[in-house]
Amino acid sequence: MKKIFCFMLSALIIVFSAGGCLAAERIALMLEGADPVAMPNSFNGICCSGLEMARERYGRKIQTEVYNAYGDAALLEPLLREASSESDLVIITSSLYVPALRAVKDEFPDCTYVVFDSRGMEGVTNIVFREEEGGFLAGVLAAMMTGEKDMARINGDFVIGIILGEDVPPARRFKLGYRAGSWYTSPGVEVLCEYTGSFTDASKVAAAARKLSRGGADVIFCAAGPASLSAIKDAVSGGWWCIGVDSELETEFPDAVLASVVKRSGHVVARVIENYMDGKLPKDSFSIGLAEGCMDISTWTRESKMNVPVEIRDKIDEIAEKIKNGLIVINEKSYGGVSAS
């Protein structure tokens, strides 16, 4: 009887041991550009914060790795291939990886891919941020603030600007929304635009801001990634106001930034991992924006309230609700027929 009991006990120990040694899910986060450690408030830094939230929640159930091409296009495909060979789930946060993904994904049929800013790619989960909604609110804010003649650095020319980095779909959507929001609020306001070709070259963004200022722009939406900080740092001496992007930059630069278009990429990364771990990650395309709590403009911060009049903040809140409820639809045929080109 003792031998039988000991055998059963040993079997139970083996079963529990096997259950406790299930392999961790291997998750890769693909970044492009800014160093998330050096720039924690950048888009990449916020994505990494979502990965950290998942680590805290799942502990040893997941193993994570971060890959970053740091602006080197030649590294995009090799990095993605390496991540795919060593991961169960690959989260791609930059559309610059999309050509590489098309070339690589069929080699790794057991790997699950989630890609930001891609539409219609079969066999992967495509997530598109509706940047045009955040851009629209930024355009509303800029068009209303450029009419505040009693405010420092507002010159009365009714000209606003936008600085973008590389010519990629998210940048085009920001531009489309910004121009549409400006026209919706004040059709007579002129909108100037500059592409720098880089999300990391601060000198190009600073030069673009100076050029926009010479053209009369007194409010500039700085949507060129982490390089935008150069335009923000020059704002007071240069004579313009900025609208930030990705995180609430007015809390760091209250004399330069009116508010920021907040793109909650960290929240999205954490939710993607949660859905994957629960077996609920869809393999299709969907978009996220204001209604899903993944995009907003930070007129709620103390610093923004100091610089943006309450009637303008209330108007932005009203318009944001209309966007959420589908009463304002932003495309190239609406609000003056503005184009993202």
Rank of each mutant, 00 (worst) to 15 (best):
S228N: 09
K280T: 13
K233L: 07
G215I: 00
Y67T: 02
E318P: 03
S94F: 05
A54Q: 04
E77K: 15
A83F: 07
I163F: 03
L22H: 12
G177R: 04
G215F: 10
A100S: 15
M1Q: 15
V104P: 00
G147C: 10
D246I: 08
G134S: 05
F129C: 01
V268L: 12
E190L: 08
C21I: 12
F174Q: 01
I297H: 01
I14S: 01
G177C: 08
K149Y: 15
C242I: 01
R210V: 10
A34T: 11
Y184K: 08
W300V: 10
M277I: 09
A38I: 06
W183A: 10
D157M: 14
A217E: 05
G59Y: 07
D278S: 11
A270F: 14
P109K: 08
G337H: 03
K333I: 09
A138P: 03
F116T: 02
R172V: 02
V159W: 03
A291G: 08
V66S: 06
L79R: 11
E248D: 15
I297V: 11
F7D: 13
V140T: 09
R313E: 05
H267A: 13
K149F: 15
S260Q: 02
E86K: 15
S334C: 10
E107S: 12
D106F: 06
K322G: 03
C294I: 03
P170R: 03
E248H: 12
E122R: 11
L176T: 00
G33N: 05
A224I: 07
G177E: 04
G239S: 03
S87Q: 05
N325E: 12
S85D: 10
D88T: 10
S85M: 11
D218C: 13
A340E: 14
V159K: 14
T301Y: 04
R313A: 06
T196M: 02
D278Q: 14
G165L: 04
I154C: 07
A38C: 06
S237P: 02
A208Q: 02
